[in-house]
């Protein structure tokens, strides 16, 4: 039951884009077409889940064990950067077709703040405060990370669908480009506010 709560909370109630404001850059940057949005969403889901597991273990068995918590930011960002590189190399060898689909998005992911953000949330255990009954352990943390990434992918694909339609409409000169995209995101965020109170 608690897993169900975590999943609903991370995907809808506390959607990473619309209520946490993490990962806005790729959200605005690669949302012009549905196909690229799906690719980016899949790449983020993959990396986010793996990065969370690795950083959680590092936090517990290296940083906390030796009292080095102040090195968290430096260590995590380096581990994420290295992990992204490794995933790229491994994918190229093991599954060229998956690499074809996700390859272009992988380098962009290092500076995607939702990866580092979720890694820090899970490592510090602060994510569990919003969900009744959740324990900040590895399994629940991983489920939370996976659900958060799915929430990101859903937000991205929804937004890309709207933007594809929006591109054909006439928009006042000053609102063209980013402003109208932000306004659309604002309306979507308002829709997602309807989920508040579900969990």
């Amino acid at each position: 039951m608690v897993y169900f709560l975590i999943i609903i909370s991370a995907i809808f109630v506390n959607n990473i884009v619309f209520s946490q404001f993490l990962g806005i850059c790729p959200f605005l940057g690669v949302s012009k077409r549905i196909s690229t949005a799906v690719g980016m969403g899949a790449a983020v889901t993959f990396v986010l889940t793996l990065a969370t597991i690795v950083t959680y273990l590092l936090q517990k068995y290296v940083l906390a064990a030796f009292g080095l918590e102040f090195l968290q930011t430096i260590l995590f960002i380096l581990v994420i950067a290295a992990l992204v590189q490794m995933i790229e190399i491994v994918l190229k060898k093991i599954s060229p077709s998956l690499y074809q689909a996700l390859g272009v998005f992988l380098p962009l992911i290092t500076t995607n703040c939702c990866i580092l953000g979720v890694a820090i949330l899970v490592a510090n255990g602060t994510w569990a405060a919003k969900i009744p009954g959740a324990e900040p352990d590895l399994l629940q943390g991983t489920v939370f990370a996976l659900a958060t990434a799915i929430g990101f992918a859903i937000a991205l694909v929804l937004f890309a669908g709207i933007r594809e339609q929006l591109a054909m409409n006439k928009v006042p000169k000053a609102m063209e480009g980013t402003p109208v995209a932000l306004l659309t995101a604002g309306l979507l965020a308002m829709a997602f506010m309807g989920f508040s109170g579900v969990v």
Partner: peptide, 14 residues
């Protein structure tokens, strides 16, 4: 709240 951030920034940018 969250939606206001997007909307306020959109109009400021415009």
């Amino acid at each position: 709240l969250a939606p206001g951030a997007f909307i306020a920034l959109a109009f400021l940018m415009a």
